[in-house]
Design a protein around this nucleic acid. Structure first.
Lengths: 205, 205, 205, 205
DNA sequence: CATGAATGAGAATTCATTCAT
DNA sequence: TATGAATGAATTCTCATTCAT
């Protein structure tokens, strides 16, 4: 019986933890880190502020987890796409397309990605996240270069540029009123940009 | 004598104003908008907090000026470069090169560009700044496309991607410890990336 | 047990709220709105400044409540007195007497009534309070006039004058050192003044 | 020549002093003591803030002078009226009428009279001013009582009540939109109120 | 003498975090 | 374990007063 209670409890705890993360994510998405006060997160999650501190040692660590979790999911998907068969170009396009598509549906993962956090600790995490993103693209870039499909280039820089390019392109111009029909054009344009950027002719000598 | 006093005073005032702007810029650069409290700016500028309000009506307006001033300077230079003779590719490369070079010297214009301000008023200004940057690149893109030098592409998206690409590439990996020698390679890689992105082959049908 | 805790807590909360109101009232009474800073109110109530904001959304709203609560109490009593049987003159006298008596015991309700608040929001509330006071007296004035007990007169003006007359008479001369024995004479004089003012002979033609 | 300069100077000084007082009075009248900051007074007077302190040792003393000067003028007029020949009733009526009329034209002397100053020093002066007003009315009251025209009453209290009555009646209901035509009725009602109050039948035994 | 830039104490308000219940 | 009231440091902004020019 003690076991049963423990099991139920553990489930509840996990549930609460998940709810807090979801609420934090939603609030950050809606209004940036600025709107995601502990009070707001607690209210949204249906818990007390004190309870938050039972699951997370500080606001900063909560936000770090929100960020890393979101990025981990994203990167898992991207890695899977990049691991498929096909040319490097095809796979890069598919990855950018997939990311852009999801970003447009919940446009603010990208936002949380760009938004400056209030806390240096979170800021550090954000940089790591961007690097993780970068790494995913580096993989396919290296493959493309080694097969001769892509010209020689700095994979570090190209990967960073790809991440920057599509976050920039996605976050700002996508006003809430942008009609759905234009999304396809936008995605296509971003995908093309990135594809050209890595597979275009090498530098003219 | 009254004239001299007035002249000296005016100089002092202009100097103070400039010092405040410089301090704000430096603090924003170092630690984002978060670190640039009025108290910190005042201390850094060697003035009292009250003095700040003699020069700027509010914190928000100070930051807006920091932002717009920095961007105006940058855009002026870029516009000049893009107005020079030469192929669109040459001019785009020159522009990106010039921006990247200055960004590496005072690496944090780009940061202020990315950092999320605490204040919606400043946020609005930042978006306008990004658009102004975008607009500069749109000009050369349109020219390149109309002469057939660049393939057909969405100038809006390409311009946004270019801005995103080099801010991303510049801001993060450039740790303070990065050796100077690597800078040239970095700049070259970014320039190449952007050049390929706009002049690479059109989408394969 | 949860119930008990909740009940105790609720009691505490109500107690704190009351303490804040009491402190604000006392400070306003002693030194006007000027002395009633949030810091002072908090200190007097034995709470932190932040705690005040858990009970009242702003300084203005706290002061508005102080004012309206005090006036409501006063008006309730006055209305009750005016609703009793008797001549209009008797009831007016009783009302003025009752108000004056309480004002002398806690002499500063009247003061809060005169003091100019720093905040337009509070100022608005004060005007409403004065009107509510006025309205109470208008009732008995109208009754007296309709029964022929009082001469024809502007009830609006007479009511305002009554309020002004006794606040003025009460607030100022009542230095903290005024001996108790003189209070009775003072009250009687004020009551007489007001009674004569409304029931004296009509204007001589 | 030194004399001439000195004379011119002295004139200028007196002129400036007067201008400062006028500006302060106007600002207090318009928006209460709250709006009458030193900066505002200086701007309105066409002088620097520093200059204010050459004429008045502090904001408080400036305001005290504004108050006492205004009250002195008013009291001079009232005393003149009360010194005229006629019954006490006639002279009291004339005095109240005269004051009310001027108050309605520049409605805010009365306001400055009620408004709570930010400064205890000014507050003290205001109390004295009210007493001076009171004293004027006491004169005529004593005369009326000694001739048997007015019933026995506390002249202290009656005088205070008169001052309170008409300031209250004048300040508040006089919204800026009140039509001029109603002013006559208002003045008449106030005059009647005060006249009845002092000349009505003595307390019923 | 006049100027007005500078000061700096103090005001209201916010919010992450703690801790008694 | 959960609650949410309380804390208190930090932030932006104001304004009477001073003093170098």
């Amino acid at each position: 019986m003690a076991y049963q209670r423990s099991a139920l409890m553990q489930e509840r705890l996990a549930e609460n933890r998940e709810r807090i993360l979801r609420s934090a994510r939603a609030l950050i998405a809606r209004g940036g880190f600025r709107e995601a006060s502990i009070t707001a997160v607690a209210a949204d999650a249906g818990l007390s502020t004190g309870a938050i501190y039972r699951y997370f040692p500080s606001k900063a660590e909560l936000f770090v987890e929100v960020l890393t979790e979101a990025v981990r999911r994203e990167c898992d998907i991207l890695r899977e796409i990049i691991g498929r068969p096909g040319t490097a170009d095809q796979r890069l396009r598919a990855a950018v397309d997939s990311f852009a598509r999801r970003a447009l549906e919940g446009p603010y993962l990208a936002y949380a990605f760009i938004a400056e956090p209030t806390d240096p600790e979170v800021e550090a995490a954000r940089i790591l996240c961007r690097q993780e993103f970068s790494d995913v693209f580096k993989t396919v870039l290296r493959q493309g270069i080694s097969t001769g499909e892509f010209p020689r280039q700095s994979v570090d820089v190209s990967a960073a540029c790809i991440v920057g390019a599509f976050t920039e392109a996605l976050v700002r111009p996508v006003a809430p009123t942008t009609p759905r029909s234009k999304d396809e054009k936008l995605i296509e344009a971003i995908v093309d940009f990135c594809a050209r950027a890595v597979s275009g002719p090498a530098r003219q000598a």
